[in-house]
Nucleic acid binder design. Sequence first.
DNA 1: ACCTGAACACCGTTCAAGT
DNA 2: ACCTGAACACCGTTCAAGT
Lengths: 232, 232
Amino acid sequence: MASMPRRATQPTTSRATARPALSRERVVTAAMELADRDGLDALSMRRLGGILGVDPMSLYNHVRDKDDLLDAMADTAVAGIAPSPGEGHWTERLRSTILSARATMLRHPWAPRLIEQRDRPGPATLRYFDTVIGILMDGGLAIDLTHHALHLLGSRVIGFNQDLFDDRSEAARDPAVIALMASQLADSHPYVARMAGTVSHEGGLGGCDDDVEFTFALDLILEGLDRRHRAG
Amino acid sequence: MASMPRRATQPTTSRATARPALSRERVVTAAMELADRDGLDALSMRRLGGILGVDPMSLYNHVRDKDDLLDAMADTAVAGIAPSPGEGHWTERLRSTILSARATMLRHPWAPRLIEQRDRPGPATLRYFDTVIGILMDGGLAIDLTHHALHLLGSRVIGFNQDLFDDRSEAARDPAVIALMASQLADSHPYVARMAGTVSHEGGLGGCDDDVEFTFALDLILEGLDRRHRAG
DNA sequence: ACCTGAACACCGTTCAAGT
DNA sequence: ACCTGAACACCGTTCAAGT
């Protein structure tokens, strides 16, 4: 972001509003900002054109189609992940890499779901995977175990725990709603009710995809992998 | 499905085509069949109306809006999961429950992604979760560990390993494409290339969300949970 | 080379009208 | 009570035209 070339605006028209020439980079950046602000569903080619002060069709000069734009957004997000440490045990290196990825993904809440929907990885994503696979193999893991590890980690490898229900909705975070739900559920769903009533490390059922859950899962997985590695 | 009431068609018109009265059940079933056949993206209210031989707007008499329909589809899919065994060690009971869920989800490839997008669980899903939580708690796990387990399992609790890239696309399954990719990648991405060239338990990089990967991950997770449980 | 606007083939959904 | 069709406010994208 900071290294983005800040080309001088060339006012070929007498228009008061400075409007730098469109570019693929500018289109992608604007799309990411829109998604950061209003979510992925709010991203339409027409709205994006409006934000950039340009006819929606002009976007197609820099982007093949919407899918191409989404590919670029996903890959640019991954490109923002901080580089991995070169030293240490493979579990430590992987752990710290994944936590860096997580920090990036928290800045772009739309990214994990988007990456999951892409058909193939972009260049930055491929580079990231090469780093991760390198950590595993340089750590001495057999190629089969390395492969298993990638599937096992799933979306967690880019720092995201894909929870089954979206607990970031308003309702799911409202303690009153949760309490009501818990009491209504008590008869028919005793176990769910008990868990909903007891667990609340951030205010109830909601807000659970937090660092505690993530690191618990990550550490359990790394430990299991290391155990299998050492068992041969 | 087999227990679906087979009400007699009441031909109130002289139309040759038998057209049983619309009902919520018929709408949801048709939507699921459409999604099974053509994917979730192909499901539109207008197409669904066309399939049912009815004005698209008629659907709204049985379904609040499209979101309501999607909720019903997700919950109906979960309702198809076979009941859990009542006996055995909690790891065995959970394992067999999750593998049943997996069998169901394989019949409805659209279901996992849809369930992930829902804001809250439907009645069948709530019942399923009550079963799962019950297995964990009756197994003696502390409530906190039970809670961790749910987040750790993530989408795997309903039998689905949400892979980071969709390897069910045509390209990803084509051995020629994979071989080409591997050779092109060799220089810039040595580790990815090596893994792509070596691993092929079903013909290359594609087709990896299979039973082998799923059970490897599930067993590692169950083992780690049991270890933490026994450690207190 | 880049941008534009009209047009096409779709969406989900509201609303007033039918039976 | 249920179904219908026109209409509204959106989509992504093609294509011919502008500069």
